[in-house]
């Protein structure tokens, strides 16, 4: 079976655990294949945890979950050195971050200090504890969730940090049919993610990445991308436009998306498919603009023509 088939398999497999959310599952997989961290923003009980757990399962990766609370300290995530009386030395007890998939649940409930410790680890793929740098296992993904309603006692991630997540997804309510199916199957004792089959080996994961990097990007597509980026920087509706890192993220995701759709080249639709997930959290509306990031993405998509006018 080819790797793209394996990806389709993985999507189907995750779909068993999270019903009726195929689009989001594909995007999430796309994000992971493009080596990016994922931020899921939704209300509690929408299946954030299920999604992340299922993703780890089908990729066959080690998985840990940390519930972020306001009293969580950086050491609680990164690990701590403890004095061992037996050999009279310090031994490092690695924190939960030393895993392949880390679910950072409700990341906005912890202090900025702890958040930044995690984000730093995400950016660099390594942690430094007590002056010693330790590499994190490879691959390393962070799937963070955050509650969009800023209650008291939460610390919403600053915009500069949001940029470190390749994508931000919203799951939303399931449609009626999917919800019904979920309700029907709730009698089963086993959680669905426990029985999920592993679909992609680490080797396949790596080859997917390599193959995605090979996907051709034509000049006219780059033109389109640059027009999109330029528009976001020029127009008064945008307080913050897309950064070069954001543009690169868009291109990488579009490549991976094209690969997942069995194409050897990126077409504008690929770019448009990943645009909301990749761009919405990077765009900041200016003060007098009523909409949010999604409205801006919408404006972007509606205003910039694919074919140069």
């Amino acid at each position: 079976m080819d790797t793209v088939g394996a990806i389709d398999d993985a999507v189907a497999e995750v779909g068993k655990a999270l019903l009726g959310k195929e689009a989001q599952i594909r995007l999430a997989l796309c994000c992971l294949l493009a080596r990016g961290h994922l931020l899921i923003e939704d209300l509690p009980g929408m299946g954030k945890t299920t999604l992340s757990h299922a993703l780890a399962a089908v990729l066959g990766l080690a998985y840990r979950r940390v519930q972020f609370t306001s009293d969580l300290l950086p050491a609680d995530i990164l690990g701590v050195s403890v004095y061992d009386r037996n050999d009279a030395s310090f031994t490092f007890h690695p924190g939960p971050i030393f895993t392949q998939v880390l679910l950072a649940d409700e990341i906005n409930r912890t202090t900025p200090r702890t958040q930044s410790a995690l984000l730093e680890a995400m950016a660099e793929g390594q942690v430094t504890v007590e002056g010693e740098t330790r590499r994190l296992p490879q691959p390393f993904f962070v799937i963070a969730t955050q509650n969009p309603i800023h209650q008291s006692g939460t610390y919403p991630l600053p915009e500069s940090q949001l940029d470190r997540f390749l994508m931000r997804l919203q799951l939303g309510y399931p449609d009626a049919q999917a919800e019904r199916q979920m309700l029907l199957s709730s009698g089963a004792q086993q959680t669905p993610e426990a029985v999920l089959r592993r679909c992609l080996s680490p080797g396949e994961l790596e080859s997917c990445r390599a193959a995605a990097a090979e996907v051709h990007v034509a000049d006219s597509l780059l033109d389109y991308l640059q027009r999109l980026v330029g528009f976001s920087r020029e127009r008064p509706e945008f307080a913050v436009g897309l950064s070069p890192r954001g543009a690169l993220a868009l291109l990488n995701c579009a490549r991976t998306w094209a690969f997942m759709n069995r194409r050897q080249h990126v077409v504008p639709e690929d770019l448009q498919a990943v645009l909301p997930a990749v761009a919405a959290h990077r765009l900041v509306p200016s003060g007098d603009y009523a909409g949010d990031g999604h409205a801006l993405v919408d404006l972007l998509q509606r205003s910039v023509d694919v074919i140069r006018p």
Partner: peptide, 25 residues
């Protein structure tokens, strides 16, 4: 791209107008 715009123009005459930003696919 010019040819594609020609196609869009033909379709417009048929009553199907491509919106700004609508991808060819």
């Amino acid at each position: 791209q010019r040819l594609f715009l020609e196609f869009c123009e033909q379709m417009r005459r048929q009553g199907i107008t491509r919106t700004t930003g609508e991808a060819p696919g």
